[in-house]
Design a protein around this nucleic acid. Sequence first.
DNA 1: CGAAGCATTGACTGGGGTCAACTTATGTGG
DNA 2: CCACATAAGTTGACCCCAGTCAATGCTTCG
Lengths: 240, 240
Amino acid sequence: MAEPARLASLGASLARLAALAPLSERELEALRDAERLRERFPPHREIVAEGEPVRGLAAVLSGWAARVRHFADGRRQLLSLLLPGDLIGNCRQEDPLAVTTIVALTEVALCPLPDSRGMPGLARAYAISGALDEAYLYRHVARLGRMGAYERIADWLLEIEERLGAAGLTAEQGQLPIPLTQEMLADTLGLTSVHVNRTLQSFRRKGLIEWRSGKVTLRDRRALVMLLAYRPVAISGARD
Amino acid sequence: MAEPARLASLGASLARLAALAPLSERELEALRDAERLRERFPPHREIVAEGEPVRGLAAVLSGWAARVRHFADGRRQLLSLLLPGDLIGNCRQEDPLAVTTIVALTEVALCPLPDSRGMPGLARAYAISGALDEAYLYRHVARLGRMGAYERIADWLLEIEERLGAAGLTAEQGQLPIPLTQEMLADTLGLTSVHVNRTLQSFRRKGLIEWRSGKVTLRDRRALVMLLAYRPVAISGARD
DNA sequence: CGAAGCATTGACTGGGGTCAACTTATGTGG
DNA sequence: CCACATAAGTTGACCCCAGTCAATGCTTCG
């Protein structure tokens, strides 16, 4: 955002990263280089396995991935979503082990990122990216712990709008490309796909959102924000 | 654990930190120094305010604190618990802003910690502490997203046992000092205090735990672990 | 055109929330 | 050491949000 001209040559996803901190010409060059090398993963493929050594720092160039935890009886929880521009393996130890499994939700392209040694701008950008991850993770905890289904979805949509915006992925008229099935969304929000379906339909009927073939439009952002501010306390017989 | 003799002069809480990575004599000395300076907070007092600049790195010497988020209508969610030995302000940016409010749940004593510049052992210890925080946070997300009340409490108790053990705070016979009210536990686990109460009573009646005046004993750890593995699927009419 | 994955709908159930009363600790000043 | 106040824990009655099960459409895409 600060220097659109110099970032222009970067793909959108790395542009998000580059916008987090002022970068020197050399650092930008390093990112441009990195971008050329990319590794692809088909949907459902594990990108990182929990407990395995982390291979190094990488960035999501396209597609969505997720940190995931599986239960013995088949339940699963998506712990966090990794969108284009997000980092993988962004930690401080020398030889870290992966804390969670990471799986590709769609087709995903990664690129390895340069070490930040001797590049203070990059180091700052990585640090800020990590802090953002942490902030979104806390938000996710609050969402799962204390929000009902309507609130969870509204809050999540607003978060995704913000994050896709930062990655430069909001199409014109605020269309958000969200390639998740309702079941993935359910596994993210701690709900069942059936209930996600019903809640989304209610949103659509009220004209709050449109959601067709992976493109989401927030038709009434104000109403979504209202949903978060205070629970109606259900006095009147207002239905739906 | 590696070097009990050299750690002996450290208070238990900082001993946990020191056990995370091999430390030089100079680094240990720096910790011993730090330990002398302490700041006290009464229960309910804010230690860090969300959005404010972080004052620097510190460690919890005694008492429990929590990262917390408040909702407009009075609901609140404890995002993570800070036990003796845990760090506050452990991040990588230069001038970070606090991502969440931190509040003292009990009387809390903090001590400032030395910067890790020029002390690679300390740097590693801080990094590992941060990685552990992250791991527990992901576990918390899975707990809130996909576990029922029984599982949440069982899983949480096992986590706390592990963490108190690492901090050297498990008394003889595995008594855990847990200074939380049922309401605080409810705000941690995304439940109501009423439901926490009923669930705990069920645990007690089944002989799984004892909980009296802040001292918890896990009487049947095996059964607690079983609770996590698979949901009973409720075929028979087994009550309670 | 068939198959597989995804979305939708209905009927039913139950875990956990809500409200409100009551009891038991904890503690504080006289 | 008691009287009182306040916080914490306990219990019961009732209800609703979200889960479950199962059938049926709707898309894609070989």
